[in-house]
Amino acid sequence: MQNDEAIWHDIRYIHCCYMAKIETGIFCRNPYNVTGLCSRSSCPLANSRYATIRDHDGVFYLNYEKALELIDKHLLYWPEMLQHMNTCSQNKGEDNVNA
């Protein structure tokens, strides 16, 4: 589990590659920061409660639960892929022994 306060301290006072300091203030170039302001409440890196709605090919992604659902859906075939890869590598090893 992330500690928002520790992350904010590190990126605000040590280093943040998204931070832009100019004469009028300190801004954020992170594409998930919708305000553009460098502040703890609008920092997508240091605020675990921060959410951004994103459009990806006409599909809008809103929340953490939906993201987990999509990840689970795409990982359904992962065990089959691992089994196939193991079978292929075992067959490759047998070919080398028989050569």
Rank of each mutant, 00 (worst) to 15 (best):
N47D: 05
V97C: 00
W78M: 07
L82P: 09
N47H: 02
N91Y: 09
R29C: 12
P44M: 07
N63A: 03
A67I: 14
E5F: 08
L62I: 13
Y13T: 12
N63E: 03
V34M: 10
N30R: 00
A46H: 01
H74R: 02
I53N: 10
E69H: 02
Y32L: 14
I71Y: 06
H84Y: 10
C16H: 04
H15P: 00
F60M: 02
S48K: 11
S39P: 02
D10K: 14
Q2H: 05
R29F: 14
F27K: 02
C43Q: 01
L68Q: 08
T52Q: 01
H9P: 00
T35K: 01
A99L: 09
L45D: 08
S39L: 09
D10F: 15
Y64W: 09
P31A: 00
P44C: 08
I53E: 11
R40V: 08
W8Q: 01
E80L: 11
Y13P: 02
A20E: 13
L76A: 14
L37H: 11
A99N: 12
E94I: 05
I26G: 06
E80H: 13
I71N: 04
M1A: 07
W78G: 03
I53R: 11
H15E: 07
G25I: 01
N47L: 03
Y32N: 11
R49K: 15
N3C: 09
E5R: 00
D72V: 06
Y61P: 02
E5Q: 08
Y61D: 00
H84C: 00
Q90I: 10
T35V: 02
C88M: 13
G36N: 09
C28N: 04
A6M: 08
D55H: 02
N96V: 13
N91L: 08
P79H: 11
H74T: 01
K73P: 00
Y32C: 09
I7Q: 01
L68M: 10
E23G: 15
